[in-house]
Simulated assay, not measured.
Amino acid sequence: MGLMGKHLRIGLSALALAALSPLALAATPGDNPRTDPVLRDCAGMPGPRVDIRDHQEGWVDVRFTVKADGSVADAVVAGAHAAAGERLTTALSVASRCQFTPGTLKGAPADTLNQTRRVFFQMDPPDKATDFELVKRFKDVRDYLEKGAFEKAADTLDRIEGQSSNLYEISQVLSRRAALAVRQGQPVLGLMYLRQVVPNADYMAADERQALLRLRLQLELDLGLPVDAARTAALIADLGRQNGDKPLLDRLAALEKTVAGNAAFGVQGRLPQQCPADLCAGGRVEWVYRPSNRTISLANIQGSLDKVTARCQGKTYEARAEAGVSWTIPASWGDCSVAVSGQPGSSFQLVDEKLPPA
């Protein structure tokens, strides 16, 4: 396809309802004195438009603070795909121009940290064409996965990714990398890929989106992630109406019962042995958890862990990751996600605990 008349269109999208962003937030409903900001306007969106020479679509995830006056501050790149250099700078500029109705703390406008938006770099008009040869190779990947020929599947995906230029093709590659990781016994890595691709829902067919959400729900149940699983289930419009849904619903109900019936429960965590650069920005390997309660601790550490990072609406907090130390998240910090970083392949147990009233 020629590039004559083609320009790059830059669009901004909220990451879908705590969808796949590692920075999405979670807490127990009713336990949070804060409300989230609401996007009002992004000046110059869509656009600005710039000439493009590489015919390559992509995105940048931007993390920032929404100030009490609704403006954006402290924007940083949280992740990117097919984007570097000028695109990173442009994405930060685009996100920084947005205006929000501010979040609140106990009813009063307040700064809200760790907000995340995805800035898409898209051809104008959108490039929806997919080369016939790529379609054939995607089918080859599916066949290799069914036959257990994982090395051939990985090699084929590498070749496809080198030829993929639009958001649809990139999303297809990432979804198949997720399936490959699961088949190879790496569910955490598979979930990381799905967290990347599901925010691209607008660039996929409806049935593809629902299939990916079901796979994501299955992995979150396998890994014992109650908040994530509940939120993913809420995104599946026809959950309960397809073959295979009943076991998912039964497992979700069992997990919710475990959480509700115990003051403390453990979740097995593991850092991926290998993490691609587009999943682990700056080489930092993280396992991300959204707590059901407000006190967490680590136990049974195998390998080497580095930090525990709580990214909350009201604060970002880091501490050394060590066993036998409990961290209680103040209610005033609002919703939080907790990231554990360290040496690839390390494993541990995270204890999610509800403390009795003081």
Rank of each mutant, 00 (worst) to 15 (best):
P272W: 03
L113G: 00
D31W: 04
D202C: 06
M192I: 10
R311C: 00
R49M: 14
S292T: 10
G30K: 01
R118G: 06
P109A: 07
K147H: 12
F64S: 03
E256L: 07
Q268M: 03
N32T: 05
T116S: 03
V60L: 04
S21W: 00
R284K: 13
H7I: 12
S175V: 06
G85N: 09
F64E: 03
A78V: 03
R231M: 00
K152G: 11
A253Y: 00
D51I: 02
G2W: 01
Q273S: 14
L194W: 04
G85F: 05
F348S: 02
L88F: 06
Y144R: 04
N293P: 01
R142F: 12
A339L: 12
G79W: 03
D124C: 05
D228F: 00
V267G: 02
T89L: 15
L23I: 01
G244T: 04
E220K: 03
A18Q: 02
A26P: 01
S171P: 06
Q268H: 09
I160S: 04
E220Q: 14
D306A: 14
F150W: 08
L255C: 08
A230C: 05
S347K: 10
S71W: 08
D140K: 10
D36K: 02
Q274R: 13
K246M: 12
E86I: 13
L174A: 06
S341M: 05
T258Y: 00
P356G: 05
D41T: 13
D61Y: 02
D245R: 06
V197R: 04
H81M: 12
R34C: 00
V267D: 05
A233Y: 02
I301N: 05
P33F: 04
V340D: 02
F100M: 07
Q56E: 12
Q242T: 11
V188E: 13
P48V: 10
G266A: 15
K6S: 07
L191Q: 09
A178W: 01
T156C: 04
I52G: 15
R214T: 08
S297V: 03
G282I: 10
D250A: 11
T104F: 02
P330N: 10
D222W: 02
A229Q: 00
R49T: 14
A281M: 09
Q172P: 03
Q186I: 08
H7S: 12
A43V: 15
K307P: 06
A260N: 11
D143N: 13
R142P: 04
R159V: 15
W287A: 09
